[in-house]
Simulated scan of single mutants.
Amino acid sequence: MTEPKSRSELRDGDIQAVTRCAEILRMLATDQTLRAADVAAGLGLQRSTAHRYLASMANAGLIERGEDGAFEPGPIAVHLGAAAMRRSRVLEIAAPYMTALSAESHETVVLSLWGGRGAVVTRVEMDTDRLAVVHVPEGRELPLNAAQSLVFLAHLPDRQLVDRLLSSLSAPMRQDIEQSIEQVKADGMGAHSMVVQGIHAVAAPVFDARGVICTTVALIGTSEALVAGPGSGLWKALKATAEQISAHLGHTSAPPA
């Protein structure tokens, strides 16, 4: 009788399966269509094993079988590709506006995308003429009380997701963040000084053509420079930049309430 696999073995097997599916998707991105023989040769698998992978991926919607029997990208892969293209377009469009804002403000400018549990730093522009600037590493996931995350929480269309995220927090922190979200709605922007002592962040939403928030643009600097509030020149410059990027993305109407 075969011994049941241990949890660690199952975990290793799951990781291997995910890795092989990713490799199959990479092959598909290059070749457009695949057959079991192609996957078997490319990954060094038995043809029957390759066929099982393809069949499972098709059942999940990652790929689908075409009329000629070859497999091609499925609906989930197509949606992911479209999302990646939208993100790529946002980064490309925002770049010159971020550079201009950094030069005008002499502060660090950060573009963040939503990562599911908070804003994720995706692009950073720094004023290279300054002797000292605030450095923010790209790829960093920010906490929910960061200015960028607060702006997302105020505008995300999936309010059930927002409720789930907030429900995982302690009561005092949830109350603080809920108050901050209301302040974002009132000011049109979010601000926070507690992530790093002495450093202040101010973030504004960027909306796509549908009026849905797609990214945030933020100024990061010392508390002395940025704490002045919505009436200050830097806050106004940030808001104007976010509106310019939104307009470039096709946003014309007021953001959703």
Rank of each mutant, 00 (worst) to 15 (best):
E182R: 06
A186N: 14
R174G: 00
Q175H: 09
L156N: 01
P172I: 08
A186H: 12
R164G: 14
Q179H: 14
S180G: 03
A186C: 01
A186V: 00
L166K: 08
L166C: 00
S180H: 08
V162H: 04
A147V: 00
V195Y: 05
R140A: 09
L150V: 06
I177Y: 09
L166T: 03
G190H: 09
V162T: 13
L113C: 02
L111N: 05
S193C: 05
E141R: 14
E178F: 03
L111G: 05
I177F: 09
E125M: 02
L156T: 09
T128M: 12
L153G: 06
H155N: 15
R117Y: 13
E178W: 02
A186T: 03
V151D: 03
A171C: 12
R164C: 01
S193P: 14
L131N: 04
G198E: 00
G188E: 09
L142T: 11
G190S: 08
V162K: 05
M126G: 07
V195C: 09
L131I: 05
E182H: 08
E182D: 15
A147L: 11
R117T: 15
Q183N: 02
F152S: 09
A146E: 11
L165W: 12
N145R: 03
D158H: 14
A132S: 00
A119G: 14
P143K: 13
L166P: 12
V133P: 07
V133G: 05
G115M: 06
H200R: 08
H192E: 13
Q183T: 08
D158Y: 00
M173E: 15
M194Y: 00
P157W: 11
G139P: 15
A154W: 09
S167Q: 15
V162W: 06
V162E: 15
L142Q: 06
E182L: 12
P157E: 04
D176S: 15
V121N: 04
G190Y: 06
Q197L: 07
S193D: 15
S167F: 03
